[in-house]
């Protein structure tokens, strides 16, 4: 139930901040400037961090279930759905004007925006692999899910290596 509500919230925010969102990149670095989505850059950045934290939790839920000898199929379906929804929304978490130029503390590199093609490509890989993962879960094919979870993990890691700073 909690998971479902979280998906709704994720979907709602994704609608609120579509990529680009009409904001003019680099027009102002003021983090409290209102973006076209009706949120300030600071709010978007904070929401983004929360989205990623939720995604981390959902991905842990998938991995925890698949690590057990007899995973609960409905939990796997639910958790892979969470990851899938997040992967659909992810490009919307990075509207123009919410990068490091705002001065807000973040681990995202400016390359997310300057290399938008590369970022789009890698987030597509995440979206497709997450959709495939959810499909295996819907088929209750746990072996396929176990191998697909690795593909999703690879996509996550590749993106982090390219577009995210190391932790302090």
């Amino acid at each position: 139930m909690i998971l479902c509500l979280r998906s709704l919230a994720l979907a709602a925010t994704a609608l609120a901040c579509q990529p680009g969102g009409g904001a003019d990149p680099g027009a102002s670095a003021d983090p409290d400037r209102m973006l076209a989505s009706g949120m300030t850059a600071r709010q978007v950045i904070e929401a983004r961090a929360l989205h990623f934290k939720d995604l981390g939790g959902s991905f842990k839920a998938v991995r925890d279930q698949l690590a057990t000898a007899s995973p609960n199929p409905s939990l796997v379906r639910l958790a892979t759905q969470e990851v899938k929804y997040a992967s659909d929304d992810l490009p919307g978490w990075f509207p123009a004007g919410t990068g490091p130029e705002t001065g807000v503390e973040m681990r995202a590199f400016a390359e997310v925006w300057s290399d938008s093609e590369g970022f789009a490509e890698i987030s597509t890989r995440f979206r497709e692999s997450a959709a495939a993962l959810h499909a295996t879960a819907q088929d209750d094919d746990l072996d396929a899910a176990r191998s697909q979870v690795r593909a999703v993990g690879e996509a996550c890691k590749d993106c982090h290596d390219r577009y995210r700073a190391e932790e302090d």
Partner: peptide, 13 residues
């Protein structure tokens, strides 16, 4: 558990 839910200790589940 790491921040991405990608790496975790053996009892983290």
């Amino acid at each position: 558990v790491d921040v991405d839910g990608l790496e975790s200790g053996p009892l983290s589940h």
